[in-house]
Design a binder for these strands. Structure first.
Lengths: 134, 134
DNA sequence: CAGAATCCCTGTCGATACTG
DNA sequence: CAGTATCGACAGGGATTCTG
């Protein structure tokens, strides 16, 4: 009955949790997920496991602090795994967990959306500013 | 040829813009989109136009300042429209633009994901903390 | 009812320097 | 190479007050 119970619990959870409600834990989770660096890290790892340095190189301009901090949080939330290989220069690999992998389409969608509609947003801003300036 | 030109420009943009690159304008747009309040506002408006007060009521706990600030930014970026009806008590309605409407699935996905996987994240955190504490 | 403006505190984030 | 620690600048964000 374990399977049924877990399934029931999840269905129940889907009904109870609502990010529109203040104090709902999903509000906090939502604020963690809606993070520039999270979107980039998850997208970067979507192609497979990568080393710390590789991710840093991929995501240009990210500070070492923010990267480590973001990776730690994602690890704690069960979205990525951190594997340390004790070699001469320490090697650390990060990879998406199954849970983290489920987030890839979502994060990729935001990144892609921004890249695809950048010009339209620029036009809208120009119009808005012109109106406001007039 | 206007259509073809616009289409070509957009395709070109899709190739040029890359949020992984530092200094790329999409990085800034990405940081705006990855915002707790943006996700909630876009989701709230997905059902149709709503008044300021209705949105405030829907998104429990949002301060008047953050709501107004978020709505302004979204308006400037061309994602929502702001319509003022000069009645006795002023009435202001907000609605998604076609561009903003394209963002609904993405924003809804994040919110839904958080609500659907909250329990799994909780379990992961418990495990991580237990490990760290040991 | 909508929102502008102010105060103020806390957290975020980057730069730098140091350890294993 | 990966990560920690510290400091300082700055923005996020809440509470309050005031206007049309």
């Amino acid at each position: 009955m374990a399977t049924t119970t877990a399934e029931q619990r999840r269905d129940q959870a889907k009904l109870d949790y609502d990010a529109f409600l203040d104090g709902c834990p999903t509000r906090e989770l939502l604020s963690r997920l809606t993070d520039k660096w999270v979107a980039l890290v998850i997208s970067a790892l979507s192609g497979g496991p990568q080393r710390h340095g590789e991710i840093a190189h991929r995501i240009a301009g990210v500070s070492q602090k923010m990267l480590t901090q973001t990776l730690r949080t994602l690890e704690r939330d069960g979205l990525i795994t951190r594997t340390v290989t004790a070699s001469v220069p320490v090697r650390v690999d990060y990879a998406l967990t199954p849970l983290g992998h489920e987030l890839v389409p979502v994060m990729a969608a935001i990144k892609t959306w921004a890249e695809a509609h950048m010009d339209r947003v620029f036009m809208a801003r120009a119009e808005f500013d012109a109106r406001a300036g007039a």
